[in-house]
């Protein structure tokens, strides 16, 4: 990458601060809508980190797939299920919080220790492929990673069909009160929830 090293450091610091503070906001904020928009910001900053690592193609894929598709999907899901509800209080919430936080902090200290103490066998920057990485990814995808590439297309097809089947609502074929056939294209009859008020 041909940016001066000081600029790289500044960009890295800003991007990682946005990533970490944004992620904290995603899990800690009260409003789920703010969380969803912060998540979009986190995804954009991760794409910026990829650009710092000379990976323009993956950065573009990150913006397209995560910000353009996954985040929009999450916002749509929030709009569909966003109902104000009073959550039942949990009795042992405090001990749960303490246990989960200590587990996370232990895992974090372990990971950071591994990051810092392990001796990474860095390769020399001379034979770095640099800006040509998109070409190399294309070569990989159509030679030695061809089978995973094709399997990924099958996976996406399965996910699409599965999502449609799971999210589909059963539509009645005729109106109950009048007995007339219902125009199925636009009308959705809501069915009774199956499992409410069980407990």
């Amino acid at each position: 990458m041909s940016i001066a090293i000081t600029t790289q450091f500044i960009c890295f610091t800003v991007l990682s601060l946005v990533v970490i503070i944004g992620a904290l906001g995603v899990v800690l904020l009260e409003s789920i809508v703010y969380s969803a928009f912060l998540l979009g910001g986190v995804f954009m900053s991760v794409a910026g980190l990829y650009l710092l690592l000379n990976a323009s193609f993956v950065a573009a894929a990150q913006v397209l797939v995560y910000v353009g598709a996954v985040n929009v999907l999450i916002i749509f899901a929030i709009m569909l299920v966003n109902k104000k509800e009073d959550l039942k209080p949990i009795n042992d919430i405090k001990s749960r919080r303490i246990i989960s936080t200590s587990i996370c902090l232990t895992l974090l200290s372990l990971l950071i220790r591994v990051d810092l103490t392990n001796v990474w066998s860095l390769s020399s920057p001379q034979n770095s492929i640099g800006e040509e990485s998109t070409i190399r990814i294309g070569e990989h995808l159509f030679s030695d990673y061809l089978l995973p590439f094709e399997v990924a297309s099958v996976l996406l097809l399965m996910a699409m069909i599965g999502a449609i089947v799971l999210a589909r609502r059963d539509v009645m074929s005729q109106d109950i009160s009048t007995g007339l056939p219902v125009d199925q294209e636009l009308i959705e009859k809501s069915s009774e929830p199956l499992l409410t008020n069980k407990n």
């Binding site: 193609f57 993956v58 894929a61 797939v65 996954v70 990673y145 990924a152 399965m158 996910a159 799971l166």
Partner: peptide, 21 residues
Amino acid sequence: QVFAIFVITVAAAEAAVGLAI
């Protein structure tokens, strides 16, 4: 980077199915 692209693919599929569930 190729692995990261596959992870992005699987994450997209996971988000779609998860939100449908």
